[in-house]
Design a protein around this nucleic acid. Sequence first.
DNA 1: ACCTGAACACCGTTCAAGT
DNA 2: ACCTGAACACCGTTCAAGT
Lengths: 204, 204
Amino acid sequence: MQLRRADVLRGARDLLDADGLDGLTMRKLGAALNVQAGGLYWHFPSKQALLEAVADDLLAGVAETPPAGPWDQRLLTLAHRLRQALLSVRDGARLVAETFVTEPNTSMAGRTGMRILMDAGLPAEQAAWTMFAVGHYVLGHTIEEQSTGADREAKLAAQAEADADLRELAAAIGADPGRRFEFGLALMIDGIRVRVSGRTPADS
Amino acid sequence: MQLRRADVLRGARDLLDADGLDGLTMRKLGAALNVQAGGLYWHFPSKQALLEAVADDLLAGVAETPPAGPWDQRLLTLAHRLRQALLSVRDGARLVAETFVTEPNTSMAGRTGMRILMDAGLPAEQAAWTMFAVGHYVLGHTIEEQSTGADREAKLAAQAEADADLRELAAAIGADPGRRFEFGLALMIDGIRVRVSGRTPADS
DNA sequence: ACCTGAACACCGTTCAAGT
DNA sequence: ACCTGAACACCGTTCAAGT
């Protein structure tokens, strides 16, 4: 009947899915686990520490080395896994955004990506910077993807009146987020390819 | 002596700079403006609405059409402006992250970028998706850039023991954030260039 | 029109005391 | 070792009433 650290983590995830990041309070979490709010402080020193643990938990497995293959394919695998992990719980991206790189699993994912790029021929520093760029893109994309924003599309549609470009923007937001994600990712991978093959497109 | 909407916005920005997003409360803002907390609700319907107004305020001017020139130069200008706007106040990126695209100034910046890319020859849909990708990168980057994370570098350094790759990652985080930003941005621009010139690097 | 005063229903965190 | 009970110092928001 006693609470273990893992139980608290699972309870926090469930509550996150149910009530979102703003609705996740120590009191509600306590109630869900049949414990007083204060009791949770025996397991975690603060709410912040608990949230960081949940964030790190979310990213477990992301850093695993992808199967052998072309570097771009392996990098795609890594980016897809990261997105899926962030999407696996409500407000997951916002949650992770506040602990980026700090948590072990995030930096391990960066490490894995670095290895892939260095194997492809990129120097270590470029490999590290590239992984930051990819990580920031994935994070930014999923934050927006998960933002409910009440009446997001309605607001944009209202602005879009009589402006063809804004109508295109609104349509792009309504489009399948998976395809949008893929497009931006392909963009970055093409940019990386230029560096891996050691020339800029302007050269040709 | 009476409070105008603009005074509340400026007060909120100042308090943001002083105490950060988590320290910005209606009660403290009221105190700073010599008003009861409840009085603020005459000017804004909710704290959320006030924060959205501050976010939109932050991005004023970003959407202005950059001077004529090559498309990549103009896109760089836009991205730099966006980053600077987000960095202009403490926790600016986190603040904007929660209202992305929704606010008029954000979508206007997207519109400006679309025009630049369409002038360069990209079809409207690709132009829109590209601007989303660039926007997400800038947002993700600046969020991380602004995250204090207490002892970020110390934590990473602790993990980095006995792992050469992690040491490179830690060094990359310690590096000049402006240069890191530039690197990732150049990456994306090269990826866009491939689409503007109408071929993939693999073709050659 | 613009704000006060006071209340309502919450928060995170601490800590003696219980078991 | 693990949790309760109760308190402390806060929150956002509402709303009658004042000016």
